[in-house]
Design a binder for these strands. Structure first.
Lengths: 116, 116
DNA sequence: ACTGATCGTTTCGCATCCGTACCATTATAT
DNA sequence: ATATAATGGTACGGATGCGAAACGATCAGT
């Protein structure tokens, strides 16, 4: 199954998906927050604050605040690393998995609506 | 050319694309702003403040402010409708077209990196 | 001409996000 | 034991976004 995508199709896809995302009542994540939660769920652990900050090219407080926000939404969870108690390991949650599952379905649906 | 996309592939695609977008020096658009500019460029004109507000399900000032921001970035342009001077027609710009062209290429590149 | 509706903008108070700088805790090296 | 480094969090001032409400300009109906 190939995912050959033209630039025009790519933009149509993003147009439809972001529109649905904005229209929905789902929590309105920042682009950075979305990038963070996607990374946490799509890339094998462990994930740390410092690692995410370096990956995104932003400062640590950005990650801390994003985890605060998404944590209060129940999308991610913080756990102290017992092997090195300076670290905080960011973990997935059921609600976070549901959120991304919903996002994935939304994009797939938009892809189905694409003009070929 | 089919765009069959599994939910997993969709999330990988968004993961890669949002990550590159955050990492880049490109102006950091809000999800709403991104949705607006995509709509302006992907859907035939005319585009008005009220129409966009209704489409996104947000209030008018949100659109006004988004146009202020993106206007100062040179991504969109406002023009009075001479047939009905109450209306403001939102138009495309060269810089806006370049911005979206870049976004489209970025997504296409990520799609090429997708695990099949 | 007058009235009411429509459209975009502005103002207001509030919430959130940003980067810089600093702090508390914990680990490592000497 | 002490000093140094590393990690995440907090405080701060500034920038930006938000919705509700009010405003000025313009149009349409009578």
């Amino acid at each position: 199954m190939s995912v050959g995508l033209t630039p025009s199709q790519a933009l149509y896809l993003w147009h439809g998906a972001t529109l649905k995302l904005v229209q929905s009542d789902a929590p309105d994540l920042t682009m950075r927050q979305l990038s963070i939660i996607l990374h946490i769920y799509m890339v094998p652990p462990p994930h740390t604050v410092r690692g995410l900050a370096a990956l995104l090219g932003v400062t640590k407080p950005v990650i801390t605040r994003a985890l605060d926000s998404m944590g209060s939404m129940g999308l991610v969870r913080r756990v102290r690393d017992e092997r090195d108690r300076r670290n905080v390991i960011i973990q997935r949650t059921v609600d976070g998995a549901l959120y991304l599952e919903n996002l994935g379905d939304l994009i797939v649906y938009e892809a189905g609506e694409l003009p070929l």
